[in-house]
Nucleic acid binder design. Structure first.
Lengths: 147, 147
DNA sequence: TAAACTAATTATAAAGATTATAATATAAGA
DNA sequence: TCTTATATTATAATCTTTATAATTAGTTTA
């Protein structure tokens, strides 16, 4: 099944006239199989073994390409670096204020919000993003840590 | 009215045992009066005239303090630096993909999403954030610019 | 299959945003 | 006013991301 998702993604790449290089394939494959919304650096470190000479710039370049095609969504956070999410099914994220854990959360997509926004502002809406913040069950047991 | 908001904010600061320095006061005042969701650097430049010796670290320190108390919300973006929003009435943001313009958008707060998230994940939810992306009316007239 | 063309990768370096550090200055309470 | 803890300043360091130029390697075409 993730085999299928990967093949589909590669098909999309080819259709966009983008070359399939081993590094690009590996970044995409890692993202498709990842459940953790990795940062660029995490991807870089994860592929270090397979591609000892790979440059960080390659990771960023490929993430940009994948984002432009729409295969990957970038999720910037306040504390540090962006995280990247393979944009398959529409979903939202719940983020722990204490430990930073990210949990996927399914909720009926808020089409209504988008259409209302379109009417009120005249924008041509492309998508929306929602995140819910709180303390996960683990962190509720421990006294609040100072950020 | 924004006078009141400022006084209330300062009251909150005092209650939290935080010192009211001229710089801190100025950062807070600028944020209360600002409609543009400024970046740290914009605040720094705006206050340069009044405080020629102010360090950029002071701006960041104060933004952190204000955020920890809950007076200010940080809105990290993918392209560059975070923006800061005086967290008064609950609202959402519509962001132009082309020019970056941010427009406030009022919508009934999505309490239902929060309570459902709480039930499903066991998180103790504190707040949520939603942004809507698209092209503003101005940018719709111009051919799509390559990011 | 080989040559050619174009895009991708690498190895830097640079830029930009944010944080850390140590010394000095200052707000606020006694 | 004095004292003390906190805030500010000036600077450097860190971290993330992007830019550049040279090299390498996909893909197309003959």
């Amino acid at each position: 099944m993730s085999e299928t998702r990967l093949s589909q993604a590669i098909h999309t790449l080819k259709e966009s006239g983008v070359r399939i290089t081993p590094q690009r394939h590996a970044v995409l494959e890692y993202l498709v199989n990842s459940m953790t919304h990795p940062t660029a650096d995490e991807i870089y470190k994860a592929l270090e073994g397979k591609f000892p000479n790979m440059s960080v710039a390659t990771v960023y370049n490929n993430l940009r390409v994948l984002r432009e095609i729409g295969l990957v969504r970038e999720l910037p956070y306040g504390d540090s670096s962006s995280r990247f999410d393979c944009n398959t099914t529409e979903h939202y994220h719940i983020i722990c204020n204490s430990c930073g854990k990210i949990v996927d959360f399914h909720y009926p997509t808020l089409d209504e919000v988008e259409s209302l926004a379109e009417q009120v502002t005249g924008f041509d809406i492309s998508h929306h993003r929602m995140e819910i913040y709180g303390r996960c069950e683990n962190c509720q047991d421990v006294p609040a840590a100072k950020h």
